[in-house]
Design a protein around this nucleic acid. Structure first.
Lengths: 159, 159
DNA sequence: TATTCACTGGGCAATCTGTTCAGCGATACG
DNA sequence: CGTATCGCTGAACAGATTGCCCAGTGAATA
């Protein structure tokens, strides 16, 4: 577990310019092509790199409104609620958490008005006791991983 | 804004098998290569597809603990807090929200103990009044987009 | 000292990419 | 009604990249 400095540079380079190929990467990094290829294979079988799926912007799809909902679940209904939420396309992710709520989910909607429909659909299920929703206004730090990768690579370098 | 049914099939196919090329996609979808190429170009300049960056698993990097923190900010300090949080690698994303808190951020840490260090670093800043943290236990629905893409494609088909 | 491992540098055939072209049907417009 | 525009098709081309293989080297390990 963990990555070394070259792994880190590979990931960061790939994150900044996803379209470049293995050959071009090897040139930029100053290592042999086979090395980059082997590292990439290892990173993927390691699970460090899950894949290269397209990053789709919900806003561009017509869902410009994002919200986070904290759900309180009736005891023992967790599995049912999970299954229910998994069927709602507007539920982009779902976590079970410690703390006051029991679950936290990320929602998107076509508008603030449409958010009501989504929330109704989410909470319109027997096992959900209460829901608290926070609408996202700004997103100063979009989901990112590069700083963490650099941190992890640095940490391994010190070892 | 919005995508049609072919766009949807392209995105879903790409999400399921990111390594296939334009040529193979055109074969699978039964359309000409130029069409797929043109659609992809359009989807990217549209902003529907932001890119194809590697999806990195923080757990595999040595950060298996995820948490969400709700922050309350002192009036007028928002910009400073944003800038501060942007410098913390363990802050994977940050949103400003309506509701009881003012900001919501996603954190990762090397362990529950390490989470304390991260939170200290996050809240060790003047503009932050209070922080409530929820540790993620399970992630029944990992961040996903395919169902929404299919929904969006269907909606456009009905039009 | 012998072995293992990762990396290098090279080569090979097969494939894909970027690009261009002409043709075609549907739609929009004067 | 005629015409221009648009998106899609099918094809072609050179150039680049990929997946795969190999032998040699240096370092770390047993």
């Amino acid at each position: 577990m963990g990555i070394d400095e070259l792994d880190g540079r590979i990931i960061v380079l790939l994150a900044r310019e996803p379209r470049i190929g293995v050959l071009e990467m090897s040139r930029r990094l100053g290592v042999a092509r086979g090395t980059v290829q082997a590292r990439l294979d290892r990173l993927q079988s390691n699970g460090v790199i899950r894949g290269f799926g397209p990053q789709v912007d919900p806003a561009a799809l017509g869902y410009p409104v994002t919200a986070f909902a904290t759900l309180q679940i009736r005891q023992g209904q967790g599995a049912d609620v999970r299954a229910h939420l998994a069927t709602v396309p507007e539920v982009l992710e779902l976590h079970t958490t410690t703390g006051s709520g029991d679950m936290l989910c990320r929602l998107v909607a076509r508008s603030n008005a449409d958010l009501q429909r989504v929330i109704d659909r989410v909470v319109g299920f027997d096992g959900i006791v209460r829901a608290a929703t926070a609408i996202v206004m700004e997103n100063p730090v979009p989901l990112r991983i590069i700083p963490l990768v650099e941190q992890a690579a640095e940490d391994s370098a010190r070892t």
